[in-house]
Amino acid sequence: MIIINRLVKKAQEGDEKAFLKLFQQYQEDLYRIAYAYVKNQNDALDVIQEVAYRSFKKIDTLKNPEYFKTWLTKIAITCSIDLIRKNKKVIQLKPEYEEFFGSEDEDVSLSVTLQDLLDQLNEVEKSIVILRFYQDYSFKEIADFLDLPLGTAKSVLYRALHKLRKNFKEVRIGE
């Protein structure tokens, strides 16, 4: 039986080859996530190198191999935000929790350009949009992942969509 936990186990025992096999499966997604934050190739490559470094170094702390992808995604987002903060002083926008746009219906239709996504959203908004629409996480998973209350995760997402809406050709929320 071919099971992923064998590779994780091998990697946890220090097997670089096994780790690379695992990492390779996700590296393109991770690169794109990093790029969404840092917005240039050189920094995104720096982030990927850092993600590979941190994840291999810490893989023995991963208790549930089935969360390997989620775990890597989390490291990628942390590394991206660390790099942005290192490069320039950024005042983090506090999510306005009480703000809530649209309905709770998750069926969201929108058309958005990459540039909008990169330029219009703050870090928290970007994280939620990426996790919801690129990585297909549920709101519950996103809330756990980012350590936010469920309502906050939803409200931040809808605020992000609202921000983007100004430039969209088509935005339909809750249809």
Partner: peptide
């Protein structure tokens, strides 16, 4: 978002370092 060829080397470097 295009994936640069260098990605493999950078991953490898990170893993080696760790």
């Amino acid at each position: 978002i295009e994936i640069p060829n260098e990605i493999n080397n950078r991953v490898s470097l990170g893993v080696h370092q760790a």
